[in-house]
Every structure is written in structure tokens, then in C-alpha cells.
Design a binder for these strands. Structure first.
Lengths: 196, 196
DNA sequence: CCTACCGATCGGTAGG
DNA sequence: CCTACCGATCGGTAGG
């Protein structure tokens, strides 16, 4: 009995978490109220607190779930024996795919993390910095091996990550493009450049 | 006398507007309170309303001031007889320069416009769409003339604009790079591509 | 430009 | 999971 109760709680929390990601995406964390969320979930606002501790916890879970996914991926990429340019392209494609498959959470994690409270805020910022440094290191070794243009690796990381973070607009736009087309376009622009 | 009064009001409003751009950048529009703003300006919250109509007016002024600057610029670029690739690079450099010189307002306009109220919201979205279409048209004609890689022009615009919108992070980062270096790096990445 | 204050809304709790 | 409600804070106004 106790076990079934627990499973129910977990799945109910996941429903709330998913709904909160959608809501935070639509309205922004600060503008989204727990009453808005309650309407989405189909309960009264007070009832949400049987499943979650606070509004802050929802944002926390979204941000750190996303961070974990990207960390696990870059761990695997670093461990692979691929060339720097191939590692770069793998990271690029993974970011785009995450944005397509999971864009509510990825978008919220990217845009709303600043509303995390300490110590989670500092923790998240550190993880973010660490991820970007490792990404930049891959680019840097590509430059040193002559596979990548001589550019500032940290600037390249910022350009890449921000370029990709913008693609959610496409989901809402009327100009529909398939995920594959979208991916190939972005990879071409960033890897090959605009100029022919 | 009346004239001096008016001039004073205008300059006072500009001080408030500049302070609000900084505040909205730091905290986000929704999280920023008029009491926060009052502290920054050095008056009581109620006193702000002698110079402005509402919090919404501040966001409105920031967003449309920025939009006007970019519209005037793209008008001039279109009117020039330059080649598509040269027009593209001019737009690129202008966006980067605006981000460097005027980043509080540009950033707020880019990230917080969704909190505009109708009819300004629809108006802003229309202007945004129109700007991007004109930007895309320049890229498209570059593709047709064989100067630019065969990519989806609208995707390219999104990639470019989002890539540039990320560079404000540099202002706060310890990794200091001069504006010129930054500009050349970004232009190289986007125009020439990452791959050598 | 300030004091004093308003109605609305917020995140969250008590108690059942 | 709901009703009832709390203290805090919000944007903004009245009146001087």
C-alpha cells in the first residue's frame, strides 16, 4: 500500500513538473503563479503542496535535470576517441536535438535559472561555467590541430550555445521545418559558415 | 519658465528610463519592483509617477526605442548599393556594436518584450517579424547570387540574432576581450564558419 | 517630491 | 484534495 502511494506521488509530481515547465516557458518564472499552475494541473493551488515543497523546487528540478543530461553527454563525448571537429559536431547535434525534443525544460533552464535561490544558484552557475570550459577545450584542441579556424574558443562556445537556444521560436512559428532540415541548416551555418 | 520645467522633466524621465533598463536587465521586468527602481533613482516610489505613467511605459519605451534604431539602420542598408554579403556583414557588425554600446536596452528589448501589453505587444511582434523578413531577404538574395551557402534564410537569421544576443555575458565575465576582438571573432565564426 | 494608504495578488499554511 | 485564510509585497493614487 505504502509503495503504491509513493509511486502515485512520484508520477503526480512529474505531471506537475511538466506542467510547470510549460507554464514557466509561456509566462516566465516570476510571472507564473501557483494558481496558474493549479489550473493547468486541474486542482486547487493549495493541493499542489501535497506533492511539491515550493515553487522554487520546481525551477530547481527543471534546471538541474537539464544540466545533468548535458553533463552526461559531454562526459561520453570526451571519453570517445573522436577528433575535436567530430566531438564539436556531436555536441552541436545533441544540443539541437534536446532543444527539439525537450524544449520546454531546456528553454526554461536556459532562460530562467537566474531566479534560483542560493545555494542552488551558485551551484548552477558553477556547473554552467564548467560545461562551457569543457566545450571550449574541445574547440581549442581543434584549433591547435588545425581542424578549426583560429578564433577565441570561449566566444565560439557562447555563439554556438546562444544560436541554438533560439530555435524554439520555430516550434511556434508558421514556417514549419522538419527537425532534420533544421539541424542540417544550423550545423551548416555554424560549421561551414554563411559565406560560400 | 514652462520651457525649463519641460526640459527638466524630459531629462528626469531619461534618468529613470536608463535606470529601469539596468534594473530590468538585472532582475527581469516582472521581478523588478518600482520600489527597487526608486532606490536606484534616489527618490520614493510614489515620486516616480510624476515623471512616468506606469511601469509598463518604461518597458514600452525601451523596446520601441531599440526597435527604431534597428529599423533606421536596415533602411539605410537596403538603400545602399552594396552586395548581399556586404549588407549582411554590415548588419552583423551593427548588431554586435549595439550590443556592446547599448547592451542594457538591447538586452531588455530582446528578452523582456513579451511582458508588453496589447496593443503594443502585437505591434512589437509585427515589427520584429518584419525586421527578420527583411534580414532574411538580404540573405536569400545572397544565396541566389551564389555568395552565400545554400541554407534556409530564416533559420540563418535566427541563428545570427540569437548568437549575437548572447554576447552580453562577456561584459560580466572575467575573460575580458576588447570590442574589436570580440566583433572579429563573431564575424569570423558566422561568416567563415568554425571548420578550417 | 513625500507620507499615507488602497485593492489586488502573491506563495504558502492550517485544518479537515 | 478542498475551504479558508495569512502576511508580504505589488503597482499605483490622493493629497499636500
Amino acid at each position: 500500500m505504502a509503495r503504491i502511494q509513493t509511486e502515485k506521488d512520484v508520477s503526480r509530481k512529474e505531471v506537475i513538473l511538466k506542467a510547470s515547465a510549460k507554464l514557466f516557458l509561456e509566462k516566465g518564472y516570476k510571472a507564473a503563479s501557483m494558481r496558474d499552475l493549479a489550473v493547468k494541473v486541474g486542482v486547487e493551488a493549495a493541493s499542489l503542496y501535497n506533492h511539491i515543497r515550493s515553487k522554487a523546487e520546481l525551477l530547481h528540478d527543471i534546471c538541474f535535470n537539464v544540466a545533468n543530461v548535458f553533463f552526461e553527454h559531454i562526459n561520453a563525448v570526451e571519453a570517445s576517441g573522436a577528433t575535436p571537429i567530430s566531438k564539436l559536431e556531436t555536441l552541436l547535434r545533441f544540443h539541437i536535438q534536446q532543444m527539439i525534443d525537450n524544449y520546454e525544460e531546456v528553454f526554461v533552464s536556459d532562460r530562467e535559472w537566474r531566479y534560483l535561490a542560493d545555494p542552488y544558484l551558485s551551484n548552477f552557475q558553477n556547473q554552467r561555467r564548467s560545461y562551457r570550459k569543457r566545450f571550449a577545450a574541445i574547440i581549442q584542441s581543434g584549433i591547435e590541430q588545425g581542424q578549426i579556424n583560429k578564433i577565441d574558443a570561449s566566444t565560439a562556445v557562447l555563439v554556438i550555445l546562444h544560436a541554438i537556444s533560439g530555435i524554439d521560436s520555430w516550434h511556434r512559428s508558421t514556417h514549419k521545418v522538419s527537425g532534420e532540415e533544421l539541424t542540417e541548416n544550423i550545423v551548416t551555418i555554424l560549421v561551414e559558415g554563411l559565406k560560400k
